[in-house]
Design a binder for these strands. Structure first.
Lengths: 208, 208
DNA sequence: GAGAATATAAACAGCTTACTCACATTTGAC
DNA sequence: GTCAAATGTGAGTAAGCTGTTTATATTCTC
């Protein structure tokens, strides 16, 4: 449980002290998320982010030591958000259909702001530095919540973890695909995604 | 400047006539797929591909007029492959479980060679040029096959297309996720993916 | 052996990139 | 109002990478 520091750059070169600078940092992270989502990692340059944030490039480097620290900040913010959605949906015991509905609604909401950010963060953006640990920890807690839900609605203790993996990646796949087509808020899609979750978790639809 | 924009380049600058050159072209496409899958679009450079193919950069430009033509060739080959898998699985009438099993097996096989190529092709690599039409046509035929399967195993004619979309993107999501973790050939994952498909298509697991 | 097909890699020109620095402006405690 | 600290600026830089050409060498077919 010891924090592996390696020789990664510090998260922030300087802590914002006044309200002004807090807003600046926030604007940079927000713009970064937008750029990352809309153009992808290949087009993610610090200059572009600064411009999108309406801030000079110098300001960016006043707080973020380098490009990767910025990506890390974006990643942290997004992952925290997504985690809270799942945690909330899987929190108390509730009927399966309600769980599915809330999960779908929350996930869609979380992806509506920056539709493809999640996938870009997972697939394209590098995690070589200090983000490695945070990344893994996110994935672990992410799966935990799904596993809790699976365990709640399925009798068999057998394949809980695998099922959690399958369920989560299926949901992500559908949402990611819908995001690419700008169909995130098509109601029939939301309904069918709910059906998919329910069907899989009800799941006596199978014999060997 | 006299150069026209949006003038699509020909697919091949020169057709390979001897066995030697056919092998060269094949090696280039294969290496390109590998680079695209392993490093992503951001790191996809013609020089890198040539090196990975064990071929000089000059040879590459002898057959491919530019970078995009190369990506197109890779895309065409991969999409053809995937399409044939689905077509085969959804061809004749067969029990649901068999369809699911064959589909899963085929899709996993298709992704085992270059695990993340599919997603990179869909998400990162640009399709601005002449590939636009091919891309759309692929997606259309892709969905058609899924829709045919959905129609075959579900009574209601209602949401066939949406269901096809949901099903296909769910399957892709699971496979993509598994590919990222090098778990493509974990048998319990294959089994659970099959269950997911069956459950969704059996799908009386839901009431309003 | 002629001539076509194929392969080679050094070279180039242009562009983008991450990042710095010297200076300007704003803030807030006193 | 003063002034030091906090914050903001953006032209500039140096380095690297890009796609592509070209002049030359090798290998094939006949």
């Amino acid at each position: 449980m010891s924090t592996r520091i390696a020789k990664s750059a510090p998260r922030m070169r300087k802590e914002p002290r006044q309200a002004r600078s807090v807003a600046t940092v926030e604007a940079i992270i927000e713009a970064g998320a937008r750029v990352l989502s809309e153009i992808g990692w290949a087009g993610f340059s610090t200059n572009k982010v600064a411009e999108a944030a309406g801030v000079s490039i110098g300001s960016l480097y006043q707080y973020f030591p380098d490009k990767l620290a910025l990506v890390d900040a974006i990643r942290r913010r997004h992952f925290d958000h997504v985690l809270s959605v799942i945690r909330e949906a899987a929190a108390e015991e509730k009927p399966l259909r309600q769980f599915a509905r809330e999960l779908v609604r929350g996930m869609i909401a979380a992806h509506s702001i920056h539709p493809t950010l999640h996938q870009v963060l997972l697939d394209e953006a590098p995690g070589d530095r200090g983000s490695r640990a945070a990344h893994a920890s996110f994935q672990a807690r992410y799966l935990e919540h799904y596993a809790a839900a699976v365990a709640q609605y399925r009798r068999r203790r057998k394949d809980t973890e695998t099922m959690a993996r399958v369920l989560s990646s299926a949901v992500e796949g559908v949402i990611h695909n819908a995001a690419r087509r700008n169909m995130l808020d098509a109601p029939e899609l939301q309904k069918q995604l709910g059906e998919l979750i329910c069907a899989y978790l009800s799941g006596q639809g199978a014999r060997a």
